[in-house]
Amino acid sequence: MSALDSAVSPVVTAPHRAPARPPRQAKVVPTAILVLGAVYCLVPVAWVLVASSKSPGELFSTFTFAPGTGLLDNLRALFAYGDGQFLLWSLNSLVYAGIGSVLSTLVSTMAGYALAKYRFPGRDAVFLAILGGVLLPGITLAIPQYLLMTKIGLAGSYWSVLLPSIISPFGIYLCRVYALAAVPDEVVEAARIDGASEWRTFRAVALPMLLPGMVTVFMLQFVGAWNNFLLPFVMLSDERRYPLTVGLYSLLAKGSGEPALYTLAIVGAAVSIVPLIAMLLFLQRFWRMDLISGGLKG
């Protein structure tokens, strides 16, 4: 296990002092490679934004990166589609990804902390089971999950998408690694000696140290849930409960006799990417903290 355990942990033992480094002159070639990589990643995103300004006619007739004239009409059509279904899908995505990833982060943190900071019978078995869970393809589980959800009468409900997304073996695994690295045993022991209960030690002492790691797990879970397609696709049959991914897919996969609504799907994609990018930009600052801040402040 050492390969995985130490993947993120050097951070704790070795504080990184970026500002202390002597500023060197930027060289052209390395910077150029980096910027080239950034451009490679941004060009298709830029295309979504450009294409969302094209009217249905322009989409297939004008140069790929030429802006169109239909942005406002497209937005109006998008928000008017099916009595405002797009807005509903956005709210649904926010519920699934937002509530799901908050709960998932909490559950994962508690589990990861327990696996990292306690020795108890069955710990290794639990950990190995969870590692095994990381390796399972989601598609394998989607249909059995659907059938089981049906048995407890929840298929098609919000719960059917929300509940399975709370359990994240990868999140638990990450939290365990973070907890090993960021929460020194001395601090935990000190809290216990002060007479703090286990719960209070976790909440008041360990949790603040785990926060940067939790932000990362939250972010990964949020993006994962926001982009999740298969689970809601299998579970839901009422378009009013669709998240954005399934909703946008339904615009593209119409029955025969109905054209795919490319324009709506593209403008919808553009609108749905924007909040995610905003969140990434906002959460970026926490990466700067890395784990060191959490580990050292303690």
Binding site: K151, A155, D238
Partner: peptide, 20 residues
């Protein structure tokens, strides 16, 4: 309810029927 076009809808009908 719009459960998808022909292909999606019929696949879901079969699964949903098995789940009653």
């Amino acid at each position: 309810t719009d459960a998808g076009g022909s292909t999606e809808s019929s696949a879901k009908l079969l699964t949903a029927t098995r789940a009653k």
